[in-house]
Design a protein around this nucleic acid. Structure first.
Lengths: 359, 359
DNA sequence: CTGAAAGCGCTTACAG
DNA sequence: CTGAAAGCGCTTACAG
């Protein structure tokens, strides 16, 4: 099925009775070449079905590399899928191409994937690092030449960090979520899901503590429940919320996947999310608006973050960013939907399905 | 941030007092080189942080290209995200790298994206073509050298086709879906969503007609409703189901996105999916099992399809497939959940929430 | 306006 | 077991 030899600049040049240099200039729209020559070459290029070999070009001229690598945890996770879609859109618009890899949250796999991607000489890398990624080790695999933008998580052992960084405002988001539950009359509020040693989780927990502290509440350690940030694990861990009496009446979840899993877990133990127990997520993936009840959550706009990440990286490549590492904290907003009912003993109780924003 | 010159084979060779040829052999584990030499070279490679330049290698030796391109409609669509995750997993396992693009269902964008991807010299392409893709035009952009695997849709004007093809058994799936609704007592069954001029939609419509015909039912043209295969469009088109009296009591949907949108649309016009109206989807994306009611659908296992697609393409590259184009039809299975209630006038009516498979 | 030559980082015969 | 030279497909000075 693939017999033919590749059509090369030399073929076109020979067919036109020109040198490769001239044909090369036509390809890059160099105005020096005569319009007639240009037209002849164009016709021949088309006739022979020439396809430009960017790898060969980049060998001679470094600027020709236009691939950007993106490494995320898992594409099947809608948060990352929406993020990747945004990155892809911005790159395609700029004429760049996307090299994709995924880590499955394993540093070993991350290592292998990056080592493989980097051999393809991407111009830059957008990396949402796996948990427990070490800065030193990453630097070894990536070399010192590749501009890197970290997304969403910091690295273990990376003090100030010398890579660009795009983060969500995790702390503010979790604070908003918690304040919303407080406003709806809840006092015993859990923080559910995630691993506290990931920077995103610990930042969210801080925001949660901030809000509780401001309300004069000290969180019971039993309210802090870890689990892998997946729907399945969250559903499985749900009973852990109710081992103590009195149990929490609401939970701030590490992310939407956890929140959705928790809602399933609540149903499985005979509780109605949004009526008997309030839940708020983090991310606002597309699905959350359609859940039953619709999920109150913190909107992070993953697709917009993807666009933003790609644009930061392109700006870095064009030298439009200051030489020092650049940190961007994306703002985040509370999205009130139906999953955050008022607390059972609250005067707000009558409106079982909260729909408007808390006063 | 990216000052340093690239470390090259010549640097390593010089530092070791060897020739580039020897270092090159070490890189590819050529057993000819002396163990001591190998060790010295390895140490130096590591010390200088050498990273292999696959593009340069592939210029000399064609086999070195190990990128595979994947072009799908939209990553934010879970069906494609799960498919892409499968492709990625299989490629990573085989040491290949993924070049990703998306078309947004636009042939113009598809053209641009493919032209750009192809310049990076991928070893093969997995393409889920945009609607109305023309075989002739694709062949022009892609050249004749690139092995292509079409996924999910045929091309306009592509008779037998000379590219490999991986399809879902659309006709059988839609037949199963329709038979299930018939078994639950429905007679007026709509086919909802999709564009009939896409091959996947027309195949699904055929399966639907097959099942109705076998039951002696001629579908009312008003039961065939087209809409873009997205949740939003499906929700918007829902009222079209109920313009005629008597209206259908059930619908086979083009895919899960449409089915989920229809369920939202039903709610919006005061109907309860799974109780007042039965709906069955197609795909079984992760979300469908968690919908309320849980969606009865046709399981296509998108992730497994992705693994399969990648493996087919790798087999083609290794010359393990016959020279003629290879067509694979992936089997598909009915997944009964709660969204397919019995018809209102049916004796099965008592069990409003269907949970077991139809007898 | 066009061409001859050198070179990007690798690998491949071919010598030794 | 190791090296010198040529070449993959392009681009870049430098001549003319």
């Amino acid at each position: 099925m693939t017999p033919q030899r590749r059509v090369t600049l030399a073929d076109i040049a020979a067919a036109c009775g020109l040198s490769k240099a001239t044909v090369s200039m036509v390809l890059r729209d160099n105005p020096q070449v005569h319009p007639n020559t240009r037209a002849r070459v164009r016709a021949e290029l088309d006739r022979q079905g020439y396809v430009y070999h960017r790898g060969a070009a980049s060998l001679r001229r470094a600027g020709a590399v236009n691939a950007v690598a993106l490494v995320v945890n898992d594409l099947a996770n809608p948060f990352f899928a929406e993020f990747a879609a945004g990155v892809d859109a911005a790159l395609a618009e700029a004429g760049h191409v996307l090299l994709l890899g995924s880590t499955g949250e394993s540093v070993e796999r991350q290592h292998a994937v990056l080592a493989s991607l980097v051999e393809h000489d991407p111009a830059a890398l957008i990396l949402s690092p796996a948990e427990h990624s070490s800065a030193a080790r990453l630097r070894r695999v990536l070399g010192a030449r590749l501009p890197v933008l970290l997304f969403n998580r910091r690295l273990d052992g990376d003090g100030p960090g010398d890579w660009d960084y795009l983060a969500l405002d995790n702390r503010a988001g979790a604070r908003l979520a918690t304040e919303h539950l407080l406003a709806r009359g809840h006092r015993a509020i859990a923080f559910f899901g995630g691993h506290r040693d990931s920077s995103s989780c610990s930042e969210r927990r801080e925001g949660y503590r901030d809000a509780l502290a401001a309300a004069g509440i000290t969180p019971d350690p039993a309210w802090l429940i870890e689990c892998a940030p997946t729907r399945q694990e969250a559903a499985r861990q749900t009973p852990a919320l109710f081992v103590r009496d009195p149990a929490p009446t609401a939970a701030v979840c590490y992310n939407d996947a956890v929140a959705l899993g928790l809602m399933a877990g609540l149903a499985a133990c005979g509780r109605r999310a949004g009526a008997d127990f309030a839940v708020v997520g983090f991310d606002d993936i597309a699905e959350s608006a359609f859940a039953t009840p619709a999920l109150t959550t913190i909107a992070t706009e993953p697709r917009a973050r993807g666009l933003q990440a790609a644009r930061l990286v392109l700006a870095r490549l064009r030298g439009e960013l200051p030489a020092s590492p650049h940190t961007t904290i994306a703002p985040v907003a509370l999205q009130v939907r139906a999953s955050t009912a008022a607390a059972p003993d609250s005067p707000l109780q009558s409106s079982v399905q909260a729909r408007g924003p808390a006063a």
